[in-house]
Write a protein that binds this DNA or RNA. Structure first.
Length: 648
DNA sequence: GTTGCCATCC
């Protein structure tokens, strides 16, 4: 770097003569100029075609022999191509640069950009200083490059200094490109307010300035502000619309995302693969299979079908599996021309949440035969698969070897999977031991998995231990108090039950509202809250449930009163159970759809014991297939049985 | 010659 600086500073003395040695810049378009243009165009063409450094060197050698190899234009182009190929700036690029006697601002900037991209950022700044000392004024492109680099390096202090420079030098603070990249720099560094200030003070703004802020607000979780900006945007293009669709999808507002996309289509804006990925993710969250099929049609028609686009395809695997159809997910997977780690992981996770453990593990082994390497999500998938089916040894083995064989160090999430696996299988002591030997601080997830296992295996002592940790880590989460009091209730420890309930009341905690939703005809989504009587078919729903209850009771079904956490009479408990949101959704499904049609229900919380038993019975009595997605996994109810084998 | 939107797990 020292040599470079020295070399660079020697150009200072000669820099004053740049204008005098390039007279043609100030001439009208001459014949020579035209010839030069044609030549540059050809050089561009040839260099753009180069795929390797060797090829570039050959072309450069050729140009040197023709006396063209040291022109700013050619060298700038060379540096840009070399940067794209990620050739270290200190090697060949610097060598070529040093051969140029009078670098122009674009050449300097190409070098600065190269150093900025490869880091460390300080080298780019050294170069910038050299350029200034050489008497060369920066161009807007220079600042764009620097702001982009600061954004990538999350170095807001440096960004601020360069911001000051743009004001100091004059003329640049009002430049559109400079402003836009400056907004980008601030928002990437997390200084949204500063980005907004730049935006507000910009004399000229374009759709890119707007989109940058919309995305920033969306990423910060504030879709209302994003929406305000978007509504005020005079000319909305595809990227801006996509930013809104994706923003809603990322903020768990899938219905708003789908509304946005429909509006976008109505306005006649084009759709690209990135838009589709946002829409697909919204469908996955909603679990709406009719929407899913519609989106697939749109994707195929726009030329971004799952078979030709690996990102769209991977997103669709996830979508179909979360819509309850692991079969459709696998069809997409099979039909893909190219697959990557996302495709495999999504499919493995898909099999796992549908309880198809062996398919998940088989696919994992198929993947190992390709050159795609598993990542942490892949292991979450296979471990979850083992856990849902009780493949303890298989899971232990994978967990023990994941780092050694596959280079994936277990994270807290993987420990959570293991605690879940061991705990569900009844190895509560072993699960506890694993937590105690974790190399990181045990997370909420880990203790939560242990507490859940204690519920299944009715172990109040370990439950108490797990719950105490949870009360410390998330004192305001009511779920933990409810589970613990249920476990005490099942063990007949009524004093402990009232103690926990008192604790709960003392904190003024309220239960997280449970809700379920179901897709009806024409893709409409019907939402039901627990105890909901607002649906227009409420009377029919109630009637259908009562009929079902009578028939189920005749076959021995008894309401599971432990599933109600409140201090109320048994009669009241029975009433509460009958208004659980998934039962309401089921009844609506039964009265509104044809026989032979699978009823698909989505739910925000975990399905309770009583509802699970109720669904099993209902599937037999009504001879209907039901698929319920709770916040953990899928349950496929068929002829009185559930695919989870009552193990969840 | 530069700037904005991308999927699996959590």
């Amino acid at each position: 770097m020292l040599t470079l600086s020295r070399k660079l500073s020697t150009t200072r003395s000669s820099s004053t003569s740049i204008a005098s040695v390039s007279p043609q810049i100030f001439n009208p378009v001459s014949q020579i100029e035209q010839k030069r243009k044609i030549l540059e165009h050809r050089i561009n063409f040839v260099l753009d075609d180069c795929k390797t450094v060797t090829q570039i060197k050959q072309v450069h050698g050729h140009l040197l022999r023709r006396g063209l190899g040291q022109s700013c234009y050619v060298v700038t182009k060379l540096i840009r191509i070399l940067t794209k190929l990620d050739v270290p700036m200190d090697t060949y690029p610097r060598l070529v640069f040093e051969q140029v006697k009078y670098p122009n601002p674009f050449l300097w900037t190409a070098m600065i950009r190269g150093y900025a991209q490869q880091g460390p950022l300080s080298q780019a700044i050294v170069l910038y200083d050299c350029m200034r000392r050489a008497g060369t004024g920066p161009v807007s492109f220079t600042f764009s490059a620097l702001f982009k680099a600061c954004g990538a390096a999350l170095d807001v202090n440096l960004g601020r200094q360069i911001h000051a420079q743009t004001i100091l030098i004059g003329g640049f603070a009002s430049d559109l490109y400079v402003g836009n990249t400056m907004i980008g720099m601030y928002v990437k560094c997390g200084f949204l307010e500063c980005g907004r200030k730049v935006f507000d003070e910009m004399p000229n703004r374009d759709v890119i300035s707007w989109t940058e802020l919309i995305v920033a607000y969306a990423k910060s979780g504030d879709m209302d502000l994003a929406r305000d900006l978007f509504d005020g945007l005079p000319v909305k293009d595809m990227v801006a619309w996509t930013a809104m669709v994706t923003g809603y999808a990322q903020n768990a507002q899938p219905r708003e995302a789908l509304d946005m996309f429909e509006r976008m289509q109505n306005v006649g804006v084009q759709t690209d693969d990135i838009t589709l990925v946002g829409v697909i993710s919204a469908c996955a969250q909603l679990g709406a299979s009719q929407y899913a099929n519609w989106v697939r049609d749109v994707a195929e028609r726009s030329g971004f079908g799952p078979s030709e686009n690996v990102v769209v395809g991977s997103a669709m695997i996830d979508m179909y599996s979360k819509c309850g159809s692991v079969v459709d997910a696998y069809k997409v997977f099979e039909g893909m021309n190219e697959r990557n780690i996302f495709s495999y992981s999504s499919m493995i996770v898909g099999f796992a949440i549908h309880g198809r453990a062996h398919a998940a593990i088989q696919l994992f082994h198929d993947m190992l035969k390709t050159d795609i390497e598993p990542n942490h999500v892949t292991f979450i998938g296979v471990l979850t698969a083992c856990s849902h089916v009780g493949l303890v040894d298989q899971g232990r083995h994978l967990f023990a070897t994941m780092e050694k064989y596959y280079g994936v160090a277990p994270s807290a999430d993987h420990y959570t999977c293991m605690v879940d696996l061991l705990g569900r299988a009844g190895h509560l002591e072993e699960a506890l031991e694993l937590i105690e030997t974790m190399p990181m601080e045990p997370s909420v997830g880990v203790w939560g998995a242990l507490l859940g296992a204690c519920r299944i295996h009715r172990n109040p002592d370990i439950a108490q231990l797990a719950a105490n940790h949870l009360f410390e880590l998330e004192p305001n989460d009511i779920g933990n108090y409810i589970v613990l009091s249920n476990i005490y209730a099942m063990a007949g420890r009524l004093d402990d039950v009232s103690r926990v309930r008192k604790l709960m009341r003392g904190k003024g905690l309220r239960k997280n509202p449970g809700y379920s939703w179901i897709e009806a005809e024409k893709g409409q989504i019907h939402e039901f809250f627990a105890g909901d009587t607002t649906h227009r078919m409420s009377i029919e729903i109630k009637q259908a449930l009562e009929d079902l209850l009578v028939r189920l009771k005749a076959r021995g079904y008894q309401p599971d009163l432990n599933s109600v956490a409140y201090d109320v009479s048994d009669e009241e408990k029975k009433r509460i159970l009958m208004t659980h949101s998934e039962k309401l959704a089921l009844a609506y499904g039964l009265v509104s759809t044809n026989a032979g049609c699978t009823i698909r229900i989505m739910k925000n919380l975990r399905i309770c014991d009583d509802c699970h038993a109720f669904m099993c019975g209902a599937s037999q009595i009504t001879a209907r297939e039901m698929v319920i997605r709770d916040n953990m996994r899928f349950h496929h109810f068929h002829d009185g049985m559930c695919s989870c084998g009552n193990f969840w």
